[in-house]
Amino acid sequence: MNLFRLLGDLSHLASIFILIHKIQTTRSCRGISFQTQALYVTVFVARYIDLFFRWISLYNFFMKIFFIASSVYILYLMKYRYRPTHDPSIDTFKVEYLVGPAVVLSLIFNYKFEFTEILWTFSIYLEAVAILPQLFMLQRTGEAETITTHYLAALGAYRALYIPNWIYRYFTEDVVDPIAIVAGLVQTGLYLDFFYVYFTKVLQGQKFELPA
């Protein structure tokens, strides 16, 4: 564990709290992609299946439980509690285009051809692109509530912080995980456009609006 990794994980936690806070205070899941949230549940369940056979640490254990539980809770909020506030007509990204390639890639590029290992790899590839339905929705509507942009910024920061974490681990522990790194770089790259608008508009006190 190093500082980058810890800050990354805390940023990830923060993003989830921000999202739940947004849904509960506005009593609405407007602007949030159900598809992206459903993909995150898939990612966490596929990756953290190792809860049953691999012990890493208490920290690791509780974080995994939290990510699975909170992501399922968010789906519940969107699907049942605040269902009328979700507009499926603007959340139309075809998730098959993400899940399909993630399955195929994980079958080809993995460390070991074993069921749980392939699930782990699949979860890494899927997480890399899971934000796309959300970004697509943002692009379509061209604007976002400020709180939603804070959620995305925290989520993007989590991914960005994992990069110095890998560099640090390379030098201190001699650990290199090419699958996680390549997928992580792709994932972080997807946030660049968003970050540009976030820093130049939202943090200057303006509303998040994309040029028409």
Binding site: R5, D9, H12, R47, D50, R54, I56, S57, N60, M63, K64, F67, Y111, K112, E117, W120, Y162, N165, R169, E173, V175, V176, D177, P178, A180
Partner: peptide, 10 residues
């Protein structure tokens, strides 16, 4: 190299 880190990241 590879999964040497034992997938200890979240």
């Amino acid at each position: 190299y590879g999964s040497a880190n034992g997938h200890d990241e979240l």
